[in-house]
Nucleic acid binder design. Structure first.
Length: 369
DNA sequence: GTTCTAGAAC
DNA sequence: GTTCTAGAAC
């Protein structure tokens, strides 16, 4: 599997073609033409990037004297931080933003032929297996063609994992023979807990569907239905428990925009719900806009199902009503037990043995209705 | 032997 | 939130 997954470093400002990061081989980047970085504040060996294509992250070790950042957090010199898809890496002093992404080369070709649509909303379909990477690949490929990429990676003489990849360019020439000193293999704790991922996603251009001065709408990274978006306020609000009377207008606006997005869907017989999880896992208030087909490969577990089809899913109108009445949203921690409730069809309420059986059932049940 | 789930790890 | 995987269920 790892052979087919490839990792790429992409400039957020499209200043240079994408760069492939080989699995488990350190790559040195910094002040060099290939990155379009001429800033003297940037070392020629500013960062060492080591991709893990199996687990889909890149370890970023800062070698240069000046600061580099992941999602605005400084990376300490000679220490490694974990960079994941959706994170933003600034190569030096908050400049030169880059992101990484992974592609499964085997699935891209097939998807490229079938999934591109002219309608914006159509492109939001939960065609998960390959679509996201297709978009990225198309975008980057066109850039690459336009600029006639000349970047090649040159492997050192040193064997396998102890070798350092660097760019075969005049500026970087002296680096090509550099051997990596004894590798610091100790894993540095992540700067960001997984629960902060949504905040990063809010600025991910690949996920953003629309935004205004108050909110951002993004595609859910792991949609649980054919259509699944998240509407998030730009204001830092962790969850519904932090809401007050003052937020009623904001929540009404969030709901209005969510409904507008859903209204753009032209599929027949597709219903939507708009609401919040009783006890959300991810920080930053987010309203789900989710179609009721639950037809998605990312819908896998009982917890997924029950979080959208039991009282654990709280209608946005109920939240707004509670705020209007009480000035706060009631504590629903006790509803967490609903996540383990027996699997039940959300339409006919028939009990289902397991997830595969439920999936088959709801396909038929949705068609009937 | 294969499928599926649930809990640990991240 | 997801991924991984041991062990239960089939």
């Amino acid at each position: 599997m790892s052979k087919s997954v490839k990792c790429y470093l992409e400039c957020c400002k499209s200043s240079h073609p994408k760069i492939q990061l080989p699995h488990n081989l350190p790559v040195l980047i910094g002040r060099m033409p290939e990155l379009a970085v001429t800033d003297k504040m940037c070392s020629r060996n500013q960062l060492e990037l080591t991709a893990n294509c199996q687990k889909k992250y890149v370890l970023v070790k800062r070698l240069g004297a000046n600061k580099s950042q992941i999602n605005g957090i400084d990376i300490e010199q000679n220490k490694s931080s974990r960079l994941e898809e959706g994170h933003e890496l600034h190569i030096v002093n908050g400049k030169y933003p880059h992101q990484i992404y992974f592609t499964d080369e085997n699935t891209d070709t097939k998807a490229q032929k079938s999934t591109i649509s002219s309608s914006r909303i159509q492109t939001e379909k939960a065609d998960i297996s390959s679509k996201e990477s297709v978009h990225k690949r198309q975008k980057v490929t066109s850039k690459t063609k336009a600029k006639k990429a000349k970047i090649t990676l040159k492997e050192n003489d040193s064997p396998s994992t102890d070798s350092v990849y660097t760019f075969n360019s005049p500026d970087a020439g002296t680096l090509s023979t550099q051997k990596l000193e004894s590798k610091n293999t100790s894993r540095i704790p992540e700067k960001h807990h997984w629960s902060q991922g949504l905040r990063a996603s809010m600025s991910d251009a690949e996920l953003i569907v629309l935004e205004d001065e108050k909110l951002v709408v993004i595609r859910d990274k792991f949609p649980k239905a054919k259509y699944h978006w998240l509407v998030l306020p730009k204001e830092g609000i962790s969850s519904t428990k932090n809401l007050t009377f003052e937020n009623i207008d904001l929540l009404q606006h969030i709901l209005k925009v969510g409904k507008e997005i859903a209204n753009e869907v032209t599929d027949e017989d597709i219903a939507f719900r708009f609401g919040y999880h009783a006890v959300p896992s991810m920080s930053q208030l987010h309203m789900h806009v989710i179609s009721q087909d639950f037809n998605s490969p990312c819908f896998k577990t009982k917890k997924h199902w029950n979080s959208f089809t039991t009282d654990y899913f709280v209608n946005a109108t109920d939240i707004i009503q509670e705020l209007a009445t009480d000035g706060k949203v009631q504590d629903r921690k006790k509803l967490t037990s609903l996540l383990n409730a027996p699997l039940k069809c959300h339409r006919c309420k028939e009990l289902q043995k397991n997830i595969p059986t439920l999936k088959k059932h709801i396909q038929k049940c949705c068609i009937v209705l």
